[in-house]
């Protein structure tokens, strides 16, 4: 998982201007389900839906079959939720990062990673998200999440990640 948490506007405001405030909030956020705002002293803090572990928007990764770029049905509700969020927040711009496993040509994998990112983007476009809100990039096989020379690692790396600003 990404260690940085995005746009914690509410939480960081509550945490005041102490430079460690955001870090404390981040630590709390990592303890999924324990209540994000308690250590900040506010009982009614609004939880950022993008990072709330109970919210589908906290899920960001679409996984693909070998040499495939079709978005499988199991990821559609998640993609739809992000599309709705982007439609409701038309000023928010995201990046979708495509990745592949390590097998085969680096350049072909770069192209395949791009196609995976584009597949997620196209699905969001169909759901009404504007082109200008989504940038797609590919890392090909160059930035594997899982190291290892087996299907367990490869399946983790055949992936497109939805990334919000500041993440």
């Amino acid at each position: 998982m990404k260690k940085a948490l995005l746009g914690l506007l509410v939480v960081s405001a509550l945490a005041g201007c102490a430079s460690t405030g955001t870090k404390e909030a981040a630590t709390v956020q990592d303890k999924s389900g324990q209540g994000a705002a308690t250590t900040t002293g506010a009982s009614q803090a609004v939880v950022n839906p993008l990072t709330d572990p109970n919210n589908i928007l906290s899920k960001r990764s679409v996984y693909f079959d070998f040499d495939k770029s079709a978005v499988k049905d199991e990821y559609k509700p998640m993609v739809e939720a992000h599309a709705k969020y982007l439609n409701d927040h038309s000023d928010v711009k995201i990046t979708i990062q495509g990745n592949t496993d390590e097998r085969g040509s680096r350049e072909y994998n770069l192209a395949l990673g791009q196609r995976r990112a584009d597949a997620v983007k196209k699905m969001m476009n169909v759901l009404g998200v504007k082109d200008g809100q989504i940038e797609t990039v590919s890392f090909g096989e160059e930035k594997p999440k899982a190291s290892g020379n087996d299907e367990a690692a490869w399946s983790q790396n055949r992936r497109a990640d939805i990334v919000y600003p500041g993440e």
Binding site: Q114, D118, S138
Partner: peptide, 9 residues
């Protein structure tokens, strides 16, 4: 060179 500026590579 290979580009994706117009879609697929």
């Amino acid at each position: 060179i290979a580009l994706t500026r117009d879609g697929d590579t």
